[in-house]
Design a protein around this nucleic acid. Sequence first.
DNA 1: TCATGCCGGTTCACTATTATCACCAGTAGT
DNA 2: ACTACTGGTGATAATAGTGAACCGGCATGA
Lengths: 253, 253
Amino acid sequence: MQTVDKAVELLGYFSERQPEFGLSELARTSGFDKASTRRLLLALIKHDYIEQNPTTKAYRLGIGVLRLARVRETSTPTEAIVNPLLQKLVAITGESAHFSLLSGGRISSVGIVESSKSNRISFVQGEEGAIHATSSGIVCLAFSSDESINEVLKDGLEAFTEHTITDARQFRKMLQAVRNEGYHINHELYEKDVCSIAAPVFNQAMRPIGALAVAAPTSRFGSGAKKQILTAVYEAAAAASRAFGAEIDGSKL
Amino acid sequence: MQTVDKAVELLGYFSERQPEFGLSELARTSGFDKASTRRLLLALIKHDYIEQNPTTKAYRLGIGVLRLARVRETSTPTEAIVNPLLQKLVAITGESAHFSLLSGGRISSVGIVESSKSNRISFVQGEEGAIHATSSGIVCLAFSSDESINEVLKDGLEAFTEHTITDARQFRKMLQAVRNEGYHINHELYEKDVCSIAAPVFNQAMRPIGALAVAAPTSRFGSGAKKQILTAVYEAAAAASRAFGAEIDGSKL
DNA sequence: TCATGCCGGTTCACTATTATCACCAGTAGT
DNA sequence: ACTACTGGTGATAATAGTGAACCGGCATGA
């Protein structure tokens, strides 16, 4: 089924940042031969999961994916589960909260509820974050397979701020700590003056499917606020996991 | 790429009506061997497009599809285009309007704005309709390839009401009329006491990607209302097509 | 004006893959 | 204890996918 792997891998390359690809471009990105890439694309086009702009010849995701998402959402609702929890998080902590989805080694925020404060952290729907520097990414990775972790490490850990952890050994140590504690407190690893706390959300198979997180400016991230946010996030994530069918003891804190 | 075809064909079997499949069940439905079906599913699972309920062992669509839909929606917004048009249709006609998506030989309503009248036609998000009996299905099919049409005909035309067209020759004749006129007026072909008017929405490649439709009880479907609905639907569909990049002359009526 | 290099797309000899069937273990009903 | 399902697996027979080289078209630049 290596052909199938390749085909779905192609789908993974389409992102918010790059929603369109030329043929050669996609072949280069994926590492597949141009001829193979084209054949794979044609197969996907046949089923409406890819479409081609007839004027620019560029390939993009097709309408078929909308149907799939709709089926998935009505049968096993994600937004319906996550949104009320986000609302509650914002109500309790007064800071922006968001839910990020882990899929194909990428982490992207899909649900966002912002704080009503004027100095708040803002997120963009679907924005992709660095998996090794955002709190959501780190908690997901901590509970992922070793292969996933190695995959991230082999490309090197890009530094976003002076606090970003770029040393592989140190990074692994941090992941171990996250596994023990069940959450991660992020002090400006990704962006200056932004701190956040995230906890993983598991599915029925106990695999991390994403994370709930609350982010605040460093100035409002005192130890009191930190404790409050931590318990709120941890409990919300546990509730989400339970809603997705995971069995969580819920009393780790 | 026949393996890819099969894999994505599997995805197509998941629907609102049947969002979960057992292994043998899916093998029977698809006609593939059980072993092959399993291998295909494993490949899809690896990329999060399918997930398995660990207790019931049933397979369902995975979270990966949500990411795809989000990428597609932010790069080439569908709802953002369609919803205002639906609102306008309801405002003009006073009846319920909806947008249906054509994908993989299926037609399912993805955008719905209901009339404010108490006696109105109600739709369910994502509900699948018979492609040969609903106005949306008929207009899409009329502008689809001959293969698609033959595909529908070969399974026979199921009768839903006494007005449903079940004769293949008569059905082809109707499609020809739709191609000439650019719309279809449905008089209780699918449901008793429900009439509707639909016009196709095209993409940049001038392929029908769906249809806009307005539905009303037969009692309110007089010739005056009919004319008003027709022009409104036709113009809204042309506007949608233009928004999707199709080149529509717009003055066929 | 000609050369270079990239683009999307295609061809065909070469090589890898996938399909199928029989089978296993488990479970529910008779 | 027998039957008939279920989910899942493994080895051989049969079929599929791969990729270097190529095409025409289009820009860029000498």
